[in-house]
Simulated assay, not measured.
Amino acid sequence: MTIELKNIRKAFKTNTVIEDLSLSVAKGETLVLFGPSGAGKTVLLRLIAGVIEPDAGEIRVNGQNMAGVEPEDRGIGMAFQNFALFPHMDAFANIAAPLTARGQSKGAMTETVEKVARLLKIDHVLHHKPKELSNGQKQRTALARALSAQPSVLLLDDPLRNVDAKLRFEMRLELPRLLKDQNATVIYVTQDYKEAMALGHRIAVMNGHGIQQVGTPADIYHAPANVDIARLFGDPVINLLDIVPERRDGRVVAMISDRAIPLADDYAPQIGQPCILGLRPEALRFVADGTPGAIPVEVEAETPLNEKTVTLVLTLRGREIMVSRPAGTPGPASGQAHVAVDAGAAILFDRATGRRIAPVHKMMRQEDVA
């Protein structure tokens, strides 16, 4: 089923949570709602589910207007953060509740419940009541209940939030397969950018009463719509440096540690304009002195982080830059060093508005398509 939201508005007294929000989700798509706490992600799910009604706008599921349609008649599966488990029923009965309501046979019901419980690693607690379960087990029981009904639309509100790190990592690998098998249209809420990148066909970044950007994980990471979104994705966080692009020897450049760092010629309109240069830590690498374009820096600290090593360096003017390299690869731990920049990975933002500046040739392509 498809989901379409048009000009949705929702306020609670004087607090406007969502303003003029529009969004479409294709049949079978997993769309991740990502953003900081208070951005309105859970409110948006509750609006789609019919738990609360919008103040304005239209919600359509498979083309049908949901105005006045009760939650139980929308054909939507939900797993919210508050679990909402029946306290007098064990985990098996909670998971089986939608199947019981449907009148499914005991054999088929048992097979379905045990299968989804195994996938979510709660098959060993099926006969425990909610008070005997950890928060992580409760959350996975609520998720299993939503999945067991095999709904056409599935709303998942941060279902791995209370799960320990190891299981959360495993679930990032398992859930995409599970959701694909369900063939459902899924809206998945999370505040974990790695989870968003791993699970979403597309990501909708919510902040400031609405959606700031919708795109594939690659789009969001490599072409964030603004500085705020750039900061939300990546660990360590993106390097952001105030610059004013110049033209030297016929090239568009940014000056860092008195060295000219080449930028794409498509940024020529920004020459002389105050900008912010965004550089992902992995777009920087340590090189030998004398390497063309090498930037002199002072190494301040080095932090091994399992699969990578992160180094904090200072430019000649004391600006901090993070450099990330795969664990085990050589790099200086202290003293003077030099780094090179992958100019093709540079992202430019307008310093006044924080918005990403699209290179001229990309803007022309978009206009040609339009």
Rank of each mutant, 00 (worst) to 15 (best):
K6L: 12
I8K: 00
F12S: 01
D20A: 12
A26C: 05
A26I: 05
E29V: 09
T30W: 07
V32Y: 07
L33I: 06
F34V: 04
G35I: 06
K41A: 07
L44H: 01
L45K: 03
G57W: 01
I59D: 03
V61T: 02
N62C: 07
N65T: 11
M66R: 02
V69E: 04
P71N: 06
E72P: 01
R74P: 07
G77T: 05
A79W: 00
N82G: 04
A84N: 15
L85A: 03
F86Q: 05
H88S: 10
H88Y: 09
A91F: 01
F92Q: 03
I95C: 00
A97E: 11
P98R: 03
T100V: 12
A101M: 15
Q104N: 09
K106A: 11
G107W: 04
A108G: 15
E114S: 09
K115N: 11
V125I: 15
V125L: 00
H127L: 03
K131H: 14
Q139C: 08
R140H: 01
T141W: 03
T141R: 02
A142D: 04
A146C: 02
A146D: 02
S152Y: 03
L154G: 03
A165Q: 04
E170F: 03
T190K: 08
D192Q: 07
Y193K: 04
E195S: 06
E195K: 06
M206T: 06
G210N: 01
I211F: 07
Q213N: 10
P217T: 08
I220R: 05
Y221Q: 06
Y221M: 08
A223Q: 15
A225F: 10
D228W: 11
D228S: 14
D228V: 10
A230K: 09
R231T: 08
L232R: 12
G234Y: 06
I238M: 13
D242M: 11
V244R: 13
G250Q: 11
G250E: 09
M255D: 10
D258W: 03
A260S: 14
P262H: 13
Y267I: 05
A268N: 02
Q270N: 04
Q270E: 12
G272K: 07
L277E: 08
L277G: 10
L279V: 14
L279F: 08
P281I: 06
E282P: 09
G290F: 13
T291S: 15
G293F: 11
V297G: 04
V299E: 03
T303H: 15
E307V: 12
V310S: 13
V310Y: 07
T311M: 05
R317C: 08
G318S: 05
R319E: 13
E320D: 11
I321F: 10
M322G: 09
M322H: 14
T329K: 14
G331C: 10
A333H: 12
S334K: 13
V339L: 12
A346Y: 08
A352R: 15
P359H: 10
M363G: 10
M363K: 12
E367V: 15
A370I: 15
